[in-house]
Design a protein around this nucleic acid. Structure first.
Ligand SMILES: [Mn+2]
Ligand SMILES: [Mn+2]
Ligand SMILES: [Mn+2]
Ligand SMILES: [Mn+2]
Lengths: 141, 141
DNA sequence: CAGAAAGTGTAGCCTGGGCTACATATACCG
DNA sequence: CGGTATATGTAGCCCAGGCTACACTTTCTG
C-alpha cells in the first residue's frame, strides 16, 4: 500500500502545488477586478474587499502587489485598472473557471458546491487537465 | 456577461477557499508521514523535507505546527509519529487523493498530470463533490 | 573506537496575507 | 457651502511558510 513515488518526482509535484498557490490570489483578484470593471465601470478597493471578504487594507495591499507584478495600475482615490497583461490573465482565468464549474456540474455536483469548490480547484488545473475537461464536456454532456 | 454573484455569497466562497489553503499543508504532511511510517517504519525530518522539496528546517518547523494542532508527536532525534487524530486525517486524505486522481484519469488526463494536479486540487474538494466523483467512477468507467 | 558524514535543532531573516487603528480625502446632503 | 458619512491610504502588528547559517547529535566506517 501507499507505494511512494520517486523522491524527486514527489518533490516536483509539491513544488508545483506551492507555486500555484502563490499565484492563486493574484488570479482571483484580476478576475474579480475585470468583472467589476465590466459590470460597474470601476473597481474600487472597498468593493474588492467586500467581495473577497477581507478588510479594505488587505485589498489595497494586494492591489499593490498586482501593480508590482505588472498586472494592474491604480492612482490614489481613482480605482484600480488592469494592464493588458492583467486583462489577458483575467480572460484566461475566467474561461478556466467556467470550464471547471461546468465540469463539476456535469458530474452531478450541485451548483453552489460547484461554484465554491471551483474557486479553489481552478488554480491547480493544468493546461492538460483543462483540455481533458473541455473535451469531456464536448463529447459527453 | 460576468454576472457577479451576490456580495455575501462570493465572500463566503473566497473565505472557504482561504481556509482550505491553510489546512492544505497540514494534510499533505500527515499523508506523507503516514506513508513514510507505513513503508519505512519511520518518518524523519530529512526524509519529509526531501520528499516535499523544502529544507529540513522548514519541515521541522511545520512538524512543530502539526504537534501544536494535535496531529503529530515527536521526540528529539527520534522521528515523527501521528496521533490518532493525525492518523485519522491521513486516512481520509489518502482516500480523497485516490479518488481525485482516479477521476482525472477517467476523464482522460495522463497519469503524471493527474497526480501533479491532484496534489493541489484535492484540498478544495468538498465532501459533496467527492461523493459525486466517487459516484461517477462507480457508474461510468 | 575515533573521526567523518549525515541528520537534527535553533536562530534569524524574508515575503505574503491577514488584521486594527488612525489620518486624510472624497462624496453626499441639509 | 459646510458638515457628516463614506472611502482610501498608511502604519504597525501577527502568523505561516519559505530560506541560510551554524551548533550539536547520532550514525557510519576505516
Ligand atoms: Mn479562485
Ligand atoms: Mn474564480
Ligand atoms: Mn496535496
Ligand atoms: Mn495528496
Amino acid at each position: 500500500m501507499a507505494k511512494l513515488p520517486a523522491e524527486g518526482t514527489q518533490a516536483r509535484r509539491f513544488g508545483k502545488t506551492r507555486s500555484a498557490q502563490s499565484t492563486a490570489l493574484l488570479e482571483d483578484y484580476v478576475e474579480l477586478i475585470a468583472d467589476l470593471l465590466a459590470s460597474a465601470g470601476e473597481a474600487r478597493p472597498t468593493d474588492i474587499a467586500r467581495r473577497l471578504g477581507v478588510s479594505h487594507a488587505t485589498a489595497v495591499k494586494t492591489v499593490s502587489r498586482l501593480k508590482r507584478a505588472g498586472l494592474a495600475t491604480a492612482r490614489p482615490y481613482r480605482g484600480v485598472f488592469l494592464t493588458e497583461k492583467g486583462q489577458a490573465l483575467a480572460d484566461r482565468v475566467r474561461v478556466r473557471h467556467r470550464i471547471v464549474v461546468d465540469l463539476l456540474c456535469a458530474l452531478g455536483v450541485p451548483r453552489e458546491s460547484a461554484e465554491a469548490d471551483a474557486e479553489g480547484i481552478e488554480h491547480h488545473v493544468s493546461e492538460t487537465t483543462l483540455k481533458a475537461f473541455a473535451h469531456f464536456l464536448k463529447v459527453r454532456v
